[in-house]
Nucleic acid binder design. Sequence first.
DNA 1: ATTATCTATAGATCTATAGATAATGC
DNA 2: ATTATCTATAGATCTATAGATAATGC
Lengths: 223, 223
Amino acid sequence: MVKAAPAKRVRRSKAEQRAETLEQILDAAEYLFSLQGLHGVTLRDVAKRVGVHTTLLHYYFQDKLALFEAVFARRAGVTSGLRMEALDQYAAEAGDKPTVEGALRAFLDTDLDLYIAGGEAWMNYGAFGARVSNTPEGAVLMDVHFDPVVLKLISILKRALPDTSEEDIFWGYHFVTGSLMNTLARSGRIDRLSGGLCRSDDFMAVKKRMAKFMAAGFLALKD
Amino acid sequence: MVKAAPAKRVRRSKAEQRAETLEQILDAAEYLFSLQGLHGVTLRDVAKRVGVHTTLLHYYFQDKLALFEAVFARRAGVTSGLRMEALDQYAAEAGDKPTVEGALRAFLDTDLDLYIAGGEAWMNYGAFGARVSNTPEGAVLMDVHFDPVVLKLISILKRALPDTSEEDIFWGYHFVTGSLMNTLARSGRIDRLSGGLCRSDDFMAVKKRMAKFMAAGFLALKD
DNA sequence: ATTATCTATAGATCTATAGATAATGC
DNA sequence: ATTATCTATAGATCTATAGATAATGC
């Protein structure tokens, strides 16, 4: 038998090694938190998934909550930034005639595209975020990381809907975000309910319908 | 100083006492689970809130998960039953001309009314259910308890929307339920986002807008 | 000489069971 | 005589810290 070549020990700088380990820890935590929530996951679970000793997590993170918040923060900036750009670009293009659907597409489709293109890691983050979002502690994290983009969206919606009250617009957003979170959660419920006709992870199907659906909803509110 | 009259020891039958204690346990668990989820609550927390010894919970419930499921089941039948009735009644009234908004009002407004009228206990259940709903284990509880009502709603929507594909209708429902769960969760996010203009617990405001908003969304899908 | 990782362990819970005690039921 | 509640406790985690060891950096 030929002896397997020993795993080639790639020489990594400490900075590289640190970054790599951190990433692995965050990936593992993200996945587990997305399934079981903050309290349903132990540091042990995370360490086991990474293949390191539990105490290493304490070397990188103050405590469990700090790890949790780091998971939230890691990708929050990316999605927030991309959507902010998309909204800015849309606002510039549309000039003084923005439409509700246009604004929603910049906001929603940009995000859905990110999850579609981002593979498993981003899908896990989506489920993690959705789970966090309807939690009292989690909602505060949402505030911190997402208020700017959301308020940007709302400012465009206001211009697109000059005759709709601000209150109506906020409630409309409340509906939109609920639907988006329900999508990101991928609970599998729609799969079973529809007998397999729809799939929770078919974000293309959601993208095709969501902005249109919600735009019509907003327009109906002022009546 | 006048001595306070000793708490009048009401003579309760065992059956009464059992029912009362059970109710107290379920109320406490419902409240705590709504805030912290299954894993964030210990039996100790529940017992302390009720004012009994931890082990009493094991007398009434097999284990923690059984308690959790009992909390879910207790009110699930009530809301499911009421909405089923409302949908049946609407279907009968509307004959062969049901509307999307009519069906959604029977489904959504009936539920929102229940939370509005049910006080704190029902509000806690709503938050509990919302939290459960975007969880993998929780979604299965949703299936078991709510599939019949939801499929009833969908059958009426199909008749109201003969030219809309079944897939579109299921995705529309997916959006609706996400918005409803986001409402029941009462995370406080919309309050802060809107600078106090909207309040998470203002279910009247939601009721006023939701069916109309969603109905317009459904109608836009077939275009 | 510094940083990454592991060993050992304290101290605090947490769930669940066995068995005792106190109350109601007949 | 049965049911509701409590006492005592086993056994299994879990988080977090202190301090040792192994690797990279200069």
